[in-house]
């Protein structure tokens, strides 16, 4: 199993397309950083809206490294599923397309092992992507934009809120958020892998996984009570943005944020469990179907 995983990672390492994902992330992050360095104030004005009529705020200081990372993740974590699907959706179907699946399966390795190894390799790839995001979006932003308290702009139901987290209370939230994002993206990996089992070229499963993510995300964001109550809880995409929960700081009765607190940990925990259940079911189903599949490619 370890040897197989090593082989799988070696193959990913050697493929040029692997680096597309890292290049894409780097490009997006750099563009964001450049744009905000040049004109972050406009964006801040958009977020602050009429709050500026009533309050003084040092907007330059508010556009700090922590804030930047949050903004970048906000956008990037909607795009990264595509990058994860690009690798995981290719896991089995790419081998089928290349013809190597035949060769692989004539080796003394069980199909379940192959699914698990493919899944683990996609998971490790996802972790590396997130690590790279942490390096570029977080650490590089901190280097460029400096350290200060972080403002979180949030729409909660019918209300909009601005939360301020003190700078000594942020890092652990990012680590937790990256951890959560790893689980959330692994669901995408598992979903792509699942589709990958049925296809003989990699375009199909990648497109299928990405389409599902897009469609479900769009549905998740429809503001109709019927959908919010009866559809949204069953869409895994509703839980993909759960990493933000770590930045929703708890407050005392007089609305003052409590350092080190999270507004609703139970909700994050439940989201994590739901995502983990998705992973287990999808990987299990992938193995089940793969074991029963006739290899005709």
């Amino acid at each position: 199993m370890v040897e197989l995983l090593r082989i799988e990672l070696f193959k990913i390492w050697k493929r040029p397309r692997t680096y597309i994902a890292f290049a894409a992330i780097t490009a997006i992050v750099l563009i964001f950083q450049f744009a905000f360095k040049a004109d972050g104030i406009s964006y801040m004005n958009l977020l602050l809206q009429n709050v500026q009529d009533s309050f003084e705020l040092n907007k330059i200081k508010a556009i700090n490294g922590y804030f930047m990372c949050y903004i970048i993740l906000n956008t990037l974590l909607i795009q990264v599923p595509i990058l994860v699907a690009l690798i995981a959706g290719d896991a089995i179907s790419g081998e089928a397309n290349m013809g190597t699946l035949r060769l692989m399966l004539t080796k003394p390795v069980s199909r379940t092992e192959i699914i698990l190894v493919k899944f683990l390799a996609s998971f490790i790839f996802t972790l590396l992507l997130l690590l790279w995001m942490a390096v570029t979006a977080l650490y590089l932003s901190l280097l460029i934009f400096g350290v200060d308290d972080m403002l979180i702009f949030r729409v909660k139901g019918d209300e909009s809120q601005i939360m301020q987290i003190t700078k000594d209370d942020i890092m652990w939230r990012y680590y937790a958020a990256f951890g959560y994002a790893a689980i959330a993206l692994t669901v995408i990996a598992a979903l792509s892998l699942f589709f990958s089992v049925f296809a003989e070229n990699s375009i199909g499963p990648i497109v299928a996984a990405v389409c599902i993510v897009i469609v479900c995300t769009v549905i998740s964001n429809i503001d109709v009570p019927v959908i919010e109550q009866h559809v949204k809880p069953y869409l895994f995409t509703s839980y993909l943005v759960g990493w933000k929960g770590f930045f929703y700081i708890g407050t005392d009765p007089s609305n003052i944020p409590i350092k080190g607190s999270i507004e609703n940990w139970a909700s994050i925990r439940n989201s994590l469990l739901i995502l983990l259940a998705h992973i287990v079911i999808l990987v299990g189903a992938s193995a089940w179907f793969f074991n029963r599949k006739d290899i005709l490619s």
């Binding site: 193959k11 050697k14 493929r15 040029p16 290349m98 013809g99 190597t100 035949r102 060769l103 004539t106």
Partner: peptide, 11 residues
């Protein structure tokens, strides 16, 4: 075994 075409990792 070689089944049909001999396909390997081209990269």
């Amino acid at each position: 075994a070689i089944i049909e075409r001999p396909d390997m990792y081209k990269y």
